[in-house]
């Protein structure tokens, strides 16, 4: 592994997350037998019911004990377990480049870097429990995409791709989500890592589209602590990252108004997500990734709908 990629895997995070695992909350449609509930009945370990034999059925699944007692032909049916495919999509727009690095009580990395580590950890976690994963980085459209793979060895490619990505464009999450919804063939999990600086209605629309296909969506809303708390002092000129003109102001005096706006934005997103049974997780980049991730996975385990 190249040096740049090593940083993307947080050993502490992986260590803790491995024990918890990322389990599918809903029925997923994998193509391999795994530990997740499948929509299909099959012939596996867990018995569910009997059904009458119809010509053409494999005689291997005949319940001979029933035949011997009642002289009827019944087949034994078992619940099938499967794996899922997780689509991890990382927002690589310019606004993700912000990070209050070096400021007091600031973050240690940019939002994008944090997102990359989060994506890498999740990828490793999913592959490690033998589920499949597809990873993409987008801005206005999906820029880099590594298609579905269940092979742990392919994490190498994924991390190379993540490490090499440099943002240079604005964001259009909704468009990307709509496109993604079209490409997902089976029910799985879509993990969206973004600061969501886009029209939140359209974003929710895109999430809805994926949910409509039956898949689960997890939103990791990545925010810098300075974006959340706005603790600037003095006279500051803010230079927009996505071609928005400069603004000169005294941030201390408009902080309340700013916080009100951010809170309103987050509330709309969270409520929109909850309406669609989507997990909305706010990610403060000042928080160590292992804490955040294990916290979320534990929460997820509690709300497991197995």
């Amino acid at each position: 592994m190249a040096k740049s990629q090593i940083g993307l895997l947080d050993p502490e995070a992986i260590n803790r997350a491995e024990a918890l695992g990322l389990h599918a909350r809903y029925v997923v449609e994998g193509y391999m037998a795994g530990e997740h509930k499948s929509p299909f009945r099959g012939f596996a370990i867990e018995f569910t019911q009997h059904r009458e034999y119809v010509p053409g059925d494999d005689t291997r699944h005949l319940d001979w004990k029933v035949l011997g007692r009642t002289d009827r032909y019944y087949l034994k049916q078992y619940e099938q377990e499967t794996n899922y495919v997780a689509h991890i999509v990382l927002d690589g727009s310019e606004s993700m480049k912000y990070g209050s690095v070096g400021r007091p009580h600031g973050a240690t990395v940019t939002k994008l870097q944090y997102g990359k580590v989060l994506a890498a950890c999740l990828t490793y976690l999913i592959l490690h429990q033998r589920d499949a994963v597809a990873v993409g980085v987008f801005d206005t459209s999906m820029k880099n995409f590594i298609p579905r793979t269940g092979n742990l060895a392919s994490i190498h490619n994924i991390m190379n791709m993540l490490a090499a990505f440099e943002p240079k464009d604005q964001t259009n999450i909704a468009q990307v989500l709509h496109t993604l919804a079209g490409t997902i063939k089976r029910k799985g999990i879509t993990i969206l890592i973004s600061d969501l600086f886009d029209d939140e209605e359209k974003v929710l629309d895109g999430i809805n589209h994926i949910r409509f296909g039956g898949g689960e969506v997890v939103v990791f809303h990545v925010m810098d602590p300075y974006e959340l708390d706005f603790p600037f002092n003095g006279l500051v000129e803010f230079e927009g990252l996505e071609q928005i003109p400069k603004v000169m102001t005294r941030p201390r005096e408009i902080r309340k108004s700013y916080l009100r706006e951010v809170e309103a934005f987050r509330t709309r997103l969270r409520e929109g997500c909850e309406r669609q049974n989507t997990h909305y997780q706010l990610v403060n980049t000042a928080q160590p990734i292992h804490e955040m991730l294990s916290g979320y996975l534990a929460f997820r385990l509690r709300t497991h709908t197995r």
Binding site: E237, F238, E239, V262
Partner: peptide, 27 residues
């Protein structure tokens, strides 16, 4: 003082812009 300020490259401009538009006149 107007000449002495800090320059910050900023992501969350949309909220900032709204706040500034609301408050600039008062300030």
């Amino acid at each position: 003082n107007k000449r002495k300020f800090e320059r910050v490259v900023w992501g969350a401009m949309r909220f900032l812009k709204i706040s500034v538009e609301q408050n600039q006149r008062r300030l």
